[in-house]
Write a protein that binds this DNA or RNA. Structure first.
Lengths: 321, 321
DNA sequence: CCCCTTATAGTCGAATGGATTATAAACGGG
DNA sequence: CCCGTTTATAATCCATTCGACTATAAGGGG
């Protein structure tokens, strides 16, 4: 008796074609001078990607190889995002494609040679996500009225109400608080409402007159939104920001980086207190003079904390620790 | 010019075989009378699984079909866990297998027909994870000495120290606090140290005399550990427990379910306060008499909270909300 | 009726977290 | 050289949260 799952032997689909093509796709992020950027190829409308092939030792190493080949950029920290399969392939082939997406954090610095790649700001693709200078006018002027119109366009009152509620939660209408982590829900809502060009393109329906943000190929923008949402969530409970920082930095530079990711401003004293009480950084003893005012102390990441995983914040009232 | 990623056209691997087999695999969880269970097939050594085939509309629907076919159990809530590919297939075929794993939460109640499946307790597979009745003796009696021996078995002092530190963090040695979310790290540590049978089996090395927990096929136990860790983490910030509860329940039943998942006890008054102030439940007006003591109020889940996603707990000191 | 069991409410103090104010140290212009 | 500007850094205040504990209520069984 072999030790493989029974399903692979007697399942009802065992006789049919089961082969699929597996594609690796990367959301490579860096932050430069307070501007979050993503690594693109083509006309800035495509994420680095390539098929998973026999010569790759693992999914991760396959991804690294493709990104390095297409952009000249070696990757450090990477983490799996999501695996998609329900993509509509326009060509008639009876061949499924599975996309395994990854989030990579890096620094721009590496020279990229002559590759046809470019760093583009996140907020080119999601202009409604940057709230650092206040709520973007785009939301009140364009998105809100069109989302409400989309809700009103349906017959049933219950569905219309549900649409309004979803829009209100995602985009902070009706005095709700803005939640930066809902980036993916916002993109999907705009897609449903036909407010991003991908939706009308996929549907082959009437082209929308005004659509928001720069378009990408296939579902790449959705994958980018997935990475954005994951990163905004993760910076809150894991010290991943430091993957985006130079070896030595000031606390304000660190704050600006987090603000760039979160798309909103942070209270300065409280941010410093948070960083210090978690003992995430240590002083180098040096100071930086090019701040314009009083010199700022330079810090470096305490790599030791990466292993002190034990400090995962509980949320349950556990008994007698 | 077509709109597909360039990589699929001119990559260096384009000429080689790129087809892979995609396998769907499910960790189906339920909790019955305070005992967490996982749905298995075979001799309790195999998770429900099957290949992703053309007739499946999506990964999720493919998974649902396989689980229902193999176990007769319809699935409700499911979420993607992780996609693996670096498995060693013993057979010599030059064919990669990608495993896409899912976590499903359900209730045992559904009649499962005559399928060859069984509910097994989590803690059969991970006996070191149940701390409800105190720290299992297994840890101090077996795992700790063998982990320390494994650390001592290496030449370099730095590596030995690193091994000791990893073991101490994962298993709460040296007065560290126990962290129930590290279930996956613990399994992987035991695998590295050769303390689970899968490790010695995969290595085809000397069989270990004493190994811990019930073995599973291939890497199924690792996938189960992944699901366990994910669920233990998720119950802290999303109301997923209710997927495991009957429509109506007492607060103590709810607490026992969370305790079963977390593998540790919870402070009763504080748990009640937490549930109530989050407004997760509402009274039905009924009471339950079969508690043994004073009748307990019956509650039901407020499904409205599922949409109030806005309450994602922040951890950054954001400015002026 | 007493006692045991479980349910439910309330209290107390430490710690956390958001907002604000105060002080220190550089620079540049008059 | 003083003075205003800019930025860094420290300290304070207060509301809320959270863990641990105590007290009271309401059923069943001997």
């Amino acid at each position: 008796m072999d030790d493989r799952p029974k399903a692979t032997r007697n399942g009802r689909a065992a006789a049919k074609a089961k082969e699929v093509e597996a594609e690796l796709i990367a959301v490579v992020v860096s932050v430069n001078d307070g501007e979050p950027a993503v690594l693109t190829i083509g006309q800035g409308d495509c994420l680095p990607s390539g098929p998973f092939a026999l010569e790759h030792r693992s999914l991760q190493s396959g991804l690294r190889a493709w990104v390095e080949q297409q952009t000249g950029h070696p990757l450090g920290y990477i983490e799996q995002l999501y695996t998609f399969a329900d993509r509509d392939r326009a060509d008639g082939r009876q061949q499924r494609v599975i996309s395994i997406s990854y989030l990579a954090l890096t620094r721009k610095e590496h020279a990229t040679g002559a590759s046809a790649c470019a760093w583009r700001s996140w907020y080119d693709y999601f202009p409604w996500e940057d709230h650092r200078l206040g709520t973007p006018k785009l939301i009140a002027d364009v998105l809100k009225p069109r989302l409400l119109a989309w809700a009103a366009a349906v017959e049933e009152a219950a569905i219309a109400r549900e649409r309004r509620r979803r829009a209100a939660i995602a985009f902070a209408f009706e005095d709700r608080p803005w939640n930066e982590e809902l980036a993916l829900q916002r993109y999907e809502l705009l897609y449903e409402a036909g407010l991003v060009a991908e939706a009308t393109r996929d549907e082959r329906s009437i082209a929308s007159d005004s659509t928001a943000g720069t378009t990408m190929v296939a579902d790449h923008r959705r994958i980018l939104a997935t990475g954005l949402a994951r990163l905004r969530s993760k910076i809150k409970y894991r010290p991943v920001v430091f993957e985006l920082m130079p070896p030595v930095f000031t606390l304000l530079q660190l704050q600006r980086t987090v603000e760039a990711l979160a798309g909103r401003l942070i209270n300065k004293p409280n941010f410093r207190r948070l960083i210090e009480q978690q003992e995430l950084v240590e002083e180098t003893g040096e100071t930086s003079l090019d701040t314009g005012g009083r010199p700022a102390k330079l810090y470096q990441f305490r790599h030791a904390v990466l292993d002190e995983t034990a400090v995962a914040g509980t949320k349950l009232p556990l008994a007698r620790g």
